[in-house]
Amino acid sequence: MKISDIVALGLWPESKKTTSLKGIAELEDLGYNLFYIGKNADLYTCPGEDAKVLLVRSDRCSVFDIPLNLEIEGKGVSQTAISNNGAKFAKQSGIRTAILDETIDQSLSIAPRCQLMELCKPLEAEIDGEVVQFELIFRNYLTGSLFEATKKGEDPYGLNLSSDLKEWSKFETPLFTPTTKGVKDIPLNSQKVREIFPEIISSLEKLFKEFTEFAQENGIIVVDTKLEVFVNSKGEWILGDEILTPESSRFISKEDFDAGNYISMDKQILRDFGKAQNWKEQAKELKPGQKLEVNVPQEIKDKILSGYTTILNRLSK
């Protein structure tokens, strides 16, 4: 399938620019053609007529939606394996995902970074007179932006939380805090979104609860997770490629959590370093297509990779 066929099916957003650059030779030689370069992964069209693409994860890094010149060797392979585990867990809970069971030739050196994906487009619906796409977020603990809002007496999701709640309070049942997906994520009323997608939200809530319990039994505390829903060519709702992964969730090792050390085992380590280095301010000078030149100590890289490795080891089923 060519990129023109994908566009014709309405499964590729006009806002995402494609590339005419050549991709990895061993893939191009087999008829997989690079057409999109993302911040952390690339997409290839596949030989044949099926509505699918090949996602190839790189070792590239980004934070705050800022592309960096930073690569962490081995990160892409770990991320792919964790993503496959998350998809497997979702499928065992009866939820379809964009990640196909089919794989490319496993003898290829690039194979551990690859996932064959069903072509799909973001789920959309009208909220308060505007058509929006969604990020569906579930939280087990009060922290981050929700804690800051609650402390100020604000109620961005219509949840009626007490402003007296302490940070890291655990909710008896997970909170659903949806936002729009875009340049800026805007909080949405939780109940309104539930009413639009009752079956989707209840299915994802059940998945989140089951995964939280499984992860805790295996030494990882799940603070929260973001799930993105798409629609395939048959009109069925499915989950994307980042399902219950460190790219979409905050994971803390149980031993750290019990000791009151709330550092996530994911790119939060890089975010914290970037915040201290003022990367957001530096990135304002970037031109389109440019990467921010950063200098990250090896110990930070090692800590990030160690977190991914621990997550993979503990959550592999």
Rank of each mutant, 00 (worst) to 15 (best):
F273E: 05
C114R: 01
E210I: 09
S145I: 03
E49P: 11
L286Q: 06
A149S: 14
L142Q: 01
C120G: 13
L286I: 02
F176W: 00
F214Q: 08
M1R: 04
S248R: 02
P174K: 10
F147H: 12
Q133M: 14
M1T: 07
K52H: 07
K121Q: 15
L315V: 11
Q282P: 12
I3C: 09
T309P: 02
I82P: 13
I24L: 15
L146T: 12
I221P: 09
F89I: 14
E28C: 11
I6Y: 09
L146Q: 08
T212L: 08
F171T: 01
E213S: 15
F214C: 07
K303C: 04
T225V: 07
S248C: 11
E255V: 11
L123S: 11
L68W: 01
S78C: 04
Q92N: 15
E118N: 14
A41R: 12
K75I: 00
F134Q: 13
R60I: 00
N218D: 13
K52V: 15
S190M: 05
E26H: 07
N33D: 06
I252P: 11
D256S: 10
P174I: 07
L9T: 07
I243A: 00
R57Y: 05
S169E: 12
T225P: 03
I72F: 08
I243R: 02
I99Y: 02
E130W: 01
R57S: 09
E217Q: 15
L146K: 08
L70N: 13
Q298R: 11
V7S: 06
S316C: 13
K226N: 15
F197A: 04
D302C: 04
P122K: 07
F89L: 11
E228K: 08
P187K: 02
I104E: 10
I311K: 11
L30N: 08
